[in-house]
Design a protein around this nucleic acid. Structure first.
Lengths: 206, 206
DNA sequence: TGTGTTTCTGGACAGTCGTCAAGAGTTTCT
DNA sequence: AGAAACTCTTGACGACTGTCCAGAAACACA
């Protein structure tokens, strides 16, 4: 029997890689529904069209599977917002678009972001999660910074905060909105929009 | 055999309540070390001076135990900051004291807050956790609002943000600092201090 | 002192978990 | 066609989980 690592390095794009991705998509679905603590490999397999044994054919262990899932999620996550930067022409419009995009994400991808916050938290307990969590966090920070930079350019003003601070503050708003939205608070999304629109200008020098 | 609820309602303050609290303290220690997903009742019992069977003598099930722990934690959590409000005499001093207090909390109670964020996240997956999580969250928001209100009073200016927004923003900063501190970032605490000092004035009207 | 009551122990229970491996089924290549 | 490699299923394993319970131990009260 060949090792998993052998199968991985065998070819770049083949059926093996495709199936890995396919299984990861299934796993991501289950994980976002149940959370890290309640998701078992058998549960993941049951929500796919395969048996539980096959997971160990494509992934060394549970940690590698979850890591692969998180990275696949990451690739999707950042994409959306760079489009707003690309099409922005006026500062106030960018501000409104960004707030609206956050609200849409919070509503449509609620379970995915719930999972992201869950896994980021697990990385504080499980050392093996930490590196990937920090990497994803960094890419989110950079995404936010592209928004803030573009906003400042369009407004013709200087930025008054660091990238980390801007990300920390906005992430706090988003997380709070996600909690309240999932808890059934109907005002959560509107509050997120207005709070974002009020906060963005405060990042700039007067 | 009497029911757990009978034992609870038997007397107000007695050995039974004391032992509950004592076991909860042990459990809180273990929970903050391992996190929700990796803590078992046997692990909790092993870190106490009792056997695992006694946990079901004092608590109906695991959920009731954890809930009792979280509420006990809550009682300790808010206390500290109200002292800053009480002793504040000047706006800039309050600003500095608050930032310093956040940094101290982030350092000294890192594992406890790591647990709090973990359990708050679990409440998004486990319905039975939600009510208590929202209640604790509310009390933290009010604590922050007392800080912001006092700060505005001392500065003689009006507040420009809602209680929810102020809490969301500051909680984002704190959570980010907690992550980076636990990940070994030596600058995390200093960054939290300065970011807090920069953010607080932005809550006020110019 | 003896008799209930409360407190605590340690083992048993049924279930779930991650992991593994033997072998069946499928595809690929000669 | 047969042989070899790859893919997947199934069942087993040891370890761990929350829960329960019989009975030992400690205590309170007569």
């Amino acid at each position: 029997m060949t090792e998993v690592s052998d199968r991985i390095s065998r070819r770049q794009v083949d059926k093996f890689a495709e199936r890995r991705s396919q299984l990861a998509t299934s796993a991501l679905q289950t994980l976002s529904q149940l959370g890290y603590a309640r998701t078992s490999l058998r549960e993941i397999a049951q929500n796919s069209e395969f048996s539980h044994g096959v997971l160990h054919y494509y992934f060394r262990d549970k940690v590698e599977l979850i890591m692969y899932c998180v990275k696949q999620y990451k690739a999707e996550c950042v994409k959306r917002y760079d489009q707003i930067v690309a099409t922005a022409e006026e500062a106030d419009q960018l501000k409104v678009d960004f707030g609206a995009a956050l609200a849409v994400t919070c509503e449509e991808d609620a379970t995915m972001h719930r999972l992201w916050y869950d896994l980021r938290n697990q990385s504080l307990f499980e050392e093996s999660f930490r590196e990937d969590a920090l990497e994803i966090d960094k890419s989110l920070e950079q995404m936010i910074w592209r928004i803030v930079s573009t906003y400042a350019d369009l407004a013709g003003r200087e930025i008054a905060v660091t990238p980390a601070t801007a990300y920390g503050l906005l992430d706090g708003l988003f997380q709070q909105a996600l909690f309240r939205h999932l808890a059934g608070d109907a005002t959560a999304l509107a509050t997120l929009r207005t709070a974002t629109e009020q906060t963005l200008p405060k990042f700039l020098l007067t």
